[in-house]
Each structure stands twice: as C-alpha cells, then as structure tokens.
Amino acid sequence: MSGHERRLVIASGNQGKIREFKQLLSGLPIQVEAQPDGLDVDETGSTFRDNARIKAKVVARLTGDWALADDSGLSVDALAGAPGVHSARYAPTDQERIAKLLNALNGVADRSAHFCAALCIAAPGGELLLEVEGRCDGSIASEPRGDDGFGYDPVFEVTGTGRTFAEMTPNEKKKHGHRGRAFALLQPELDRLLAKS
C-alpha cells in the first residue's frame, strides 16, 4: 500500500467508544480520527441500523472522509426491548442510567437482555460501503460489578461467563461483546474495501 493511509473518522463523540474502535482497528492500514468537536447528529432512526446509517452519512459528508458509525444499545426483554435505541438517552449519566434500569427491574424475575451493535461505513458522496450487526446475549445483574468499560457494562452479565463486561479485559470484551462480534464481521469486508481503493 502507498505511503498515505486512508482516514476513517469515527462518527461518535463518546471517548470510550472511540478508544475501543482505535483498539479494534489498530491492525489495519488506516488512520483513525475522532469526529470534529461540537458535531451533533440527530439520531432519528427507529432501529440501531437506521441510526448508524444516519450518523455515518452525515459525518462522511461533513469531513470528506470515510466515516464509521455504530449505533448500539441494550434491549431488556422484561422492558419490551427498552432502553433500546434510546440507551444513551435513557438518563443523563452512566450512573443514573444504571440506577434507572435497576429500579425498573426491581422485583422482576426475567432479567434476560441483549446488546446489539450495528456498524456502518459511508463514503463522502453518501454511498453506504459496509453494514454489519453483532449481538451479545446476557442478563442484567442485580448490582454493578467491575471497574472497566462504560455505559451499562457493569450490570450486563454475558451468558455463559458469569461476569459483566466491566469485569472483563479488553480482549475478552472484544471476543464476547456485540461490538467485537460486529467488528469480526466488518474487518474482512473493510480489508477488501481498502485493497480495492
């Protein structure tokens, strides 16, 4: 590949998410950038995939680079799939979101839930280059556990592990997590795109 690497802008203002993507993308011949400060995209979609598309297209158009957006969230069966696409806006802070969720599940026996991550890469002309979705099943713990991760990680216990995302190393989270799984689907496709361009 030639000396200049393709820039890929992460369509997110979430520092935790940007860090995670930089780790996930570290093996590829691309320069990963955060989206410009102060950029706020209205997420008006009704599904994770819709929102990922909206964010990727807007950021690609505004930056003139390829943009990678993810829309992900937590869906809890007993809450009819809530918080779902509103996961990030469920309450003002991570702590408050977790407290609100645990409160909503107070006394509820069925604590099954899943995380879904939809990833989308768009080109500046509005073309969708890639779309994938990853899913991770688990349940909501009765109280937060672990010091790593962000968002709902301390209360999401991954099926078959007995541990929350916040109790896992980054590599374990990559292996089990919805974003890591979506990324495993994305990476070979992105390799092909990069080889073509």
Rank of each mutant, 00 (worst) to 15 (best):
D148Q: 13
D40L: 13
I54A: 03
G73Q: 04
A109P: 14
A166D: 02
L39V: 08
L190Q: 04
A99V: 14
N51V: 00
I54C: 04
A88L: 14
L102F: 08
L8N: 02
G177P: 12
V32K: 07
E20M: 12
A34E: 05
A69C: 07
L28S: 04
E96G: 11
R7S: 09
A118C: 11
F115M: 13
D50C: 15
D50L: 01
V32L: 07
A195Y: 00
R89A: 14
T161A: 06
Y152V: 12
L190M: 07
D65P: 00
K196R: 13
G180E: 06
A56N: 06
T63F: 01
E127M: 09
C120Y: 03
P144K: 10
L186C: 13
G107S: 10
V76R: 06
E189R: 15
G162M: 08
S139C: 15
D65M: 02
F150L: 14
E131Y: 01
L102T: 07
I98P: 13
R97F: 00
E172W: 05
P188K: 15
S2Q: 10
K175S: 06
S75Y: 08
V85S: 01
A123N: 07
E20G: 05
V58T: 15
L39N: 00
A56D: 02
R163F: 10
G180P: 09
P144S: 08
P170E: 08
G125Y: 01
S12I: 01
V41L: 08
V85L: 03
P144C: 08
S197N: 04
A99I: 11
S142K: 03
F150N: 11
V41F: 05
P83H: 05
N14D: 13
P29S: 12
P188N: 08
S139F: 10
G149M: 15
V76F: 07
D65H: 06
E133S: 14
D137M: 14
G38P: 08
R97P: 03
A88Q: 09
E157A: 12
D148M: 14
D153P: 05
S75A: 15
P124A: 04
L102R: 05
P92M: 04
Q31I: 00
V41M: 08
F48D: 11
R163G: 00
T164A: 11
R179M: 10
P154Q: 10
L185C: 08
G162T: 05
A11F: 02
N103F: 09
